[in-house]
């Protein structure tokens, strides 16, 4: 048994928002449950109401194409990872999702859940940040959209209101972007990120976006970087310097700040290598 809560399987998103509004901050949305139920078991959260949105067909779908992709809130990670078109359209995101937890966990865990949990180490977050993903939100007052870069408010905190439900994540047109994801773990088996990072490079605009996880209270998106391809090494040094200025890693049981600071430049360098220096990436 876990905690002490009521459970509602909702028939519409509006109904869900209504329940959450009535719970006035004591409610939580149950998607895969792989973070939420652990936190309830460990006494870190004690919601009075769980709103299960998995019965809604509208949240169970995803569509992927070059112009725009939408991933519903109930779509399990493995549905995406094992989807050929998704994997080829969003390889970095697929890599990031495949690095989350165990195979069993990924049959329950969702992309939306990964960001709603708002861990600084959320593996999907850096990729979504560099892809300019948009969070689609429903609330008592109607729907709205939030850019992922405005979504995280702190460790385990988002800018959602208590009555709001994330319904989907939308990824804008890829328009020739090359993307890459890197993660440092402590072991090859399932692990949280000691550091993670994602990059997106537009060869047309010669602009690079980088985002870093697990090195600050929230995942960090850097300002777009103009790519100067004349001197790869000097450019890499410049980027790494910029990255290190943008983050503030701490020491915890997973790693020291020193190790994070040492590994982060390596991940960035490897991303640059894949995106810029190695010919055409995906």
């Amino acid at each position: 048994m876990l905690g002490n809560f009521e459970y509602k399987r909702i028939r519409s998103i509006e109904e869900g928002c209504q329940y959450l509004a009535e719970a006035a901050g004591d409610g939580a949305v149950l998607a895969g449950g792989t973070d939420l139920l652990v936190e309830i078991r460990n006494g870190l959260k004690s919601p009075q109401l769980l709103v299960d949105c998995k019965g809604l067909d509208v949240l169970n779908v995803f569509s992927v194409d070059d112009s725009r992709s939408t991933i519903g809130a109930s779509v399990a990670l493995n549905q995406l990872i094992e989807h050929r078109v998704f994997r080829t359209t969003h390889p970095a995101l697929a890599d990031a999702l495949a690095s989350i937890g165990t195979y069993q966990l990924r049959n329950r865990a969702t992309l939306v859940g990964n960001i709603c949990n708002a861990s600084p180490a959320a593996d999907a977050a850096p990729v979504l940040l560099v892809l300019d993903a948009v969070v689609e939100v429903a609330g008592v007052e109607g729907p709205r959209t939030v850019p992922v870069r405005s979504f995280f408010a702190g460790v385990k905190k988002t800018t959602l209101k208590p009555d709001e439900i994330v319904t989907a994540i939308a990824l804008p047109a890829r328009s020739g972007l090359r993307t890459a994801f890197r993660k440092q773990q402590r072991i090859r088996g399932h692990d949280l990120a000691v550091v993670n990072a994602a990059g997106a490079y537009s060869p047309a605009k010669k602009v690079l976006k980088l985002a870093i996880g697990s090195c600050a209270p929230t995942p960090v998106l850097l300002d777009p970087i103009e790519v100067d391809s004349k001197d790869n090494e000097a450019f890499a040094d410049h980027v790494i310097e910029t990255v290190l200025r943008a983050v503030s890693p701490i020491s915890d049981v997973r790693a020291s700040a020193g190790y994070r600071n040492a590994v982060l430049p390596i991940l960035v360098k490897r991303i640059l290598h894949e995106l810029l220096f190695e010919g055409s990436g995906a």
Binding site: Y7, L30, T34, L37, V38, N78, G101, Q104, N107, R108
Partner: peptide
């Protein structure tokens, strides 16, 4: 959900049954 000892199949797919509510 870290050790997999509770793995069962849900609609044919392996999941950890410690991280799923019975009601689900």
């Amino acid at each position: 959900g870290e050790c997999g000892a509770c793995t069962v199949l849900l609609d044919g797919k392996p999941i950890t049954s410690c991280l799923m509510l019975a009601v689900e």
